[in-house]
Design a protein around this nucleic acid. Structure first.
Length: 594
DNA sequence: TTAGGGTTAG
């Protein structure tokens, strides 16, 4: 006999203890599934009773199926599902899992789905997207809920730094026709941008348009940001046109991203373009904010044009916007880079007068400024002042100072500062070690440089490409090109990819030895590695040939460089002037050097 | 509860 409780309203569970135990007993003996009773037990979290009455003869999976069949409240099924997973250590099948998700989606219990998928993704369950999608499709004919679930699955992947799975799920969703939304695709795009997977960002963006998924302001801004970071500035500008066409208007953040992109990644005339975008934004009635001005000021300062930065600084104040610590830091850093440390200090005082407190970045700029001028004592004074101001030097402060000590042959002081870092709980990083390695390398003490490299690796820090570049450079300077070439091999062995600088440094080493054949071999290797010779490559080779008196060959390289669309730079000019023209040789491309 | 700003080393 099957006990029927469906008709009972409200709290049908007998309050009387005696009748309750009689009821439980009956249920257990008759082996029937009593949906209202089970629901009640789950609702009240009477798990031990549930275990005793319903899980002695029947298994947890069967009970789950019965819950589905009786159309019990999805919330309760969800609760039972989690309990049986956690307490009974049951892994329910993917199909039942999907069924649960469908029922939650039908009941619009979205936050529960999100929480569940978050755990599912975190647990690193071995199901592939293929099997998940398949199970979702067969466990319900409700196509719409599948889309919602997949949307939240992509969201869970993206939030848990599994962008490769999120991206794969996005692609597969297209095959199944599941429609995703900005809710998941914005975090996916964000994750891809953070991982520098700009090709995939572009793919997702194009696919969204093809699949008629409407992106929002965030979607477009994230894509603009990704393209800017990759230096694809024209494409980033196109996105702004796209979004307008879709009726989504860019806001101050979108424009700030684009302006910052030009400042950081733009080529010749980049600041002119950055200002042109500012004008465009104002014409579109979008008001620049503090950040817009900070971006421009920093752009000019990094472009070694503090004067222009100052003009923007004044304009900013005319517009009623207040400069903040970042604004001052950019200007102070710019002044320090230009060697104007006195003006930089004045500006620091000015900011104090405005009620702004300098932070560690401010001090780092000043330390760097003094170091650059080899005013090590003054740099140290600023360093010591940081503590007095109630601030703490950070890794960048230490590295800047250590680098300066190393560059000035003060290796003992460099090591003392490194010890101080340990004491203060600021852990040295790869850059710290790179400074020390370069310090020894500069003096040709390769044994000590190697020791530091070993120590670095023993501390669990990975040597990076810069470390290897330093080593190659140091061996070359000692004339030990064979050892330098062996380091290049190490670079590949460590799974790193040599940069132009790596190859150029090695080429320079061979050129300085007069071994032009070996230098050309390095260039061949570099091109085989997919890296086209750049201006620096030609400069190294041209100089090498000139110094060997092979001016005709150097002339040939100059022509080749132009044919490849590379423009000679200041360094090329100096080489050509000193090594060729001053010696009476007139290169074919003389016109370039007038 | 999703997008934007500043610092080092070759």
């Amino acid at each position: 006999m099957r006990l029927k409780f469906k008709a009972l309203p409200g709290n049908f569970f007998p309050r009387n203890k005696q009748s309750r135990s009689r009821l439980l007993c009956t249920a257990s003996i008759s082996h029937t599934f009593n949906a209202p009773l089970v629901s009640e037990l789950i609702a009240k979290q009477h798990w031990s009773e549930l275990k005793r009455t319903h899980l002695t003869d029947s298994n947890p999976t069967k009970l789950l199926q019965q819950l589905f069949e009786s159309e019990v409240d999805p919330d309760l099924i969800f609760r039972y599902f989690n309990w049986s997973h956690k307490e009974l250590n049951i892994s329910h099948t993917l199909e039942l899992t999907c069924r649960l998700l469908h029922s939650l989606a039908t009941a619009k219990k979205y936050s529960k789905i999100r929480a569940f998928l978050d755990g599912f993704v975190k647990r690193n369950v071995e199901h592939s997207n293929f099997t998940i999608f398949h199970s979702l499709s067969i466990s319900s004919d409700r196509f719409c809920t599948s889309s919602i679930i997949v949307d939240m699955l992509v969201l869970a992947y993206a939030k848990n730094l599994k962008s490769h799975l999120a991206f794969e799920a996005f692609k597969r969703a297209g095959d199944y026709g599941f429609k995703l939304s900005a809710l998941s695709l914005n975090p996916l795009l964000c994750a891809l941008v953070k991982e520098n997977k700009i090709g995939q960002v572009e793919f997702v963006y194009k696919e969204m348009i093809r699949r008629k998924i409407t992106g929002d302001l965030y979607t477009f801004s994230i894509v603009v940001n990704g393209l800017c970071k990759a230096g694809k500035l024209n494409k980033a500008g196109d996105i702004i046109q796209d979004m307008k066409a879709f009726g989504v208007l860019p806001n101050v953040v979108t424009y700030n991203i684009l302006i910052d992109g030009y400042c950081k990644m733009g080529k010749l005339g980049k600041m002119y373009k950055a200002e042109a975008i500012l004008r465009e934004m104002v014409a579109n009635k979008i008001c620049p904010n503090e950040i817009t001005y900070n971006i421009l000021i920093n752009g000019f300062c990094k472009d070694e044009n503090v004067a222009a930065g100052m003009k923007v600084f004044e304009e900013m104040q005319r517009q009623g916007l207040k400069p903040n610590v970042v604004t001052y830091n950019s200007l102070i850093d710019g002044l320090c880079t230009e060697g104007k440390h006195e003006e930089a200090c004045d500006l620091k005082d000015e900011m104090l007068g405005c009620g702004l407190k300098p932070n560690v970045v401010t001090f780092n700029a000043l330390v760097k400024g003094f170091c650059k001028k080899k005013m090590i004592r003054e740099a140290r004074e600023v360093f010591d002042d940081i503590g007095v101001q109630g601030l703490a030097p950070n890794i960048i402060t230490y590295n800047t100072l250590i680098d300066a000590y190393c560059k000035n042959g003060m290796m003992d002081e460099a090591f003392l500062s490194r010890s101080l870092m340990w004491e203060k709980g600021v852990l040295p990083d790869a850059s710290t070690y790179n400074c020390l390695i370069a310090g020894f390398g500069r003096h040709g003490d390769m044994e000590k440089a190697r020791d530091i490299l070993d120590e670095m690796q023993n501390k669990g820090l990975k040597a990076d490409l810069i470390t290897y570049n330093i080593l190659i450079d140091a061996f070359c300077k000692k004339g030990e090109t064979r050892k330098a070439t062996r380091i290049l091999k190490d670079v590949f062995d460590k799974g790193l990819s040599p940069s132009h600088l790596t190859y150029n440094t090695l080429m320079d080493g061979y050129c300085k030895q007069g071994n032009l054949k070996a230098a050309l071999n390095v260039r061949a290797q570099m091109e085989k590695d997919g890296k086209r010779a750049n201006v620096a490559t030609y400069n190294v080779l041209i100089k090498g040939f000139c110094e060997k008196g092979k001016l005709e060959d150097a002339n040939g390289l100059l022509n080749e460089m132009l044919e490849k669309g590379l423009n000679p730079n200041q360094i090329t000019y100096e080489i050509v002037k000193e090594e060729m023209m001053d010696k009476g040789f007139v290169p074919d491309i003389e016109g370039h050097f007038v």
